[in-house]
Simulated scan of single mutants.
Amino acid sequence: MDNRFITIEGLDGAGKTTITHRISKYLKNQYGVTNILTTHEPGGTPVSDFLRVLIKYGGPMNEPINNISELLMIYAARLQLIENVIKPSLSKGYWVIGDRFDLSSQAYQGGGREIDILLLHALSDRITNTLSPDLTFYLDISPELSISRINHRQKLDRIEQEPLSFFDRVRSCYKKLASERKNIVTIDATQSLEEVSVSIYRHLDWWFLHP
């Protein structure tokens, strides 16, 4: 198979980062895919990493960040990543495995923040500019489990500190989008990491047989 763009989505604590690297290792070992790049959002370029700090922890003097401002920073970071990393890598034949992409904005800012869907779609269309993952794995866990898994972290960011109702909306939006789009595979991430990995490997095997 030629270059491919795979993304991993879900609530914090679902195991996205670990699964991103496991997929990369599986593709190398099982199918000999050597040109693989992993990315994460928000972040991935110097400008995107700077915006990541603002998005996650706020600006100087504890200035409140408006929901629309947050959304615009996320898309600015994404645009930098797309234009300076993802597209050039794909054009060179690399496989890109992304820890979050545009679906996160639909779920977190659209579902969680309840930002107008027309604005979200307009930004998405303009920024991603037809770039869409070939395959997305949505790691589904409950908000309660998500919170219990991340509570050990030394410092929770702005979004991680949102109330349970926020994450209920995020999850509902994820599940709705996953049910509507054929390129999204829902994985029960309440299973052990090994079980989650095996489920994903099986889907990847099927995908290779039915490109």
Rank of each mutant, 00 (worst) to 15 (best):
Ser89Gln: 11
Leu81Gln: 07
Leu72Asp: 00
Glu180Lys: 12
Tyr26Ser: 06
Ala14Asn: 03
Pro64Asp: 05
His203Trp: 00
Leu90Arg: 12
Ser192Met: 08
Arg171Cys: 08
Arg100Asp: 03
Leu37Glu: 05
Asn129Gly: 06
Arg113Gly: 02
Asn3Pro: 01
Arg126Val: 00
Pro42Gly: 09
Arg126Thr: 09
Ile150Ala: 13
Phe5Lys: 03
Arg113Met: 08
Gln109Ile: 10
Glu194Lys: 15
Leu139Ala: 07
Lys92Glu: 11
Ile82Phe: 07
Ala76Leu: 02
Leu11Ile: 08
Lys176Gln: 15
Asp12Gly: 10
Thr190Met: 12
Gln161Tyr: 05
Leu204Gln: 03
Asn66Ala: 06
Val170Pro: 09
His121Ile: 01
Lys87Thr: 12
Phe101Gly: 10
Thr20Ile: 06
Ile117Gln: 14
Ala77Phe: 02
Ile159Phe: 08
Arg4Ser: 11
Gln154Ile: 10
Val198Met: 15
Lys155Gly: 00
Val53Asn: 10
Leu118Pro: 07
Asn3Gly: 02
Leu71Pro: 03
Ser105Asn: 13
Asn151Val: 12
Phe50Pro: 00
Ile86Gln: 04
Tyr94Met: 08
Lys182Thr: 09
His210Asp: 05
Asp188Ser: 07
Lys175Cys: 11
Asp134His: 14
His40Leu: 09
Ile65Leu: 11
Gln80Val: 04
Ser69Leu: 02
Val198Gly: 01
Arg113Thr: 03
Thr186Glu: 10
Leu72Tyr: 10
Leu11Gln: 04
Gln30Gly: 03
Ile55Lys: 01
Tyr108Thr: 10
Glu83Gly: 03
Ser24Asn: 06
Phe208Tyr: 10
Ala107Met: 10
Leu90Glu: 07
Arg100Asn: 08
Gln106Ala: 14
Ser89Ile: 00
His152Ala: 14
Arg202Met: 05
Glu180Met: 13
Ile82Trp: 03
Leu79Met: 09
Tyr94Asp: 07
Tyr108Arg: 10
Thr130Tyr: 14
Leu37Asn: 03
Phe166Ala: 00
Pro163Asn: 13
Gly13Ser: 09
Gly59Met: 02
Asn84Cys: 06
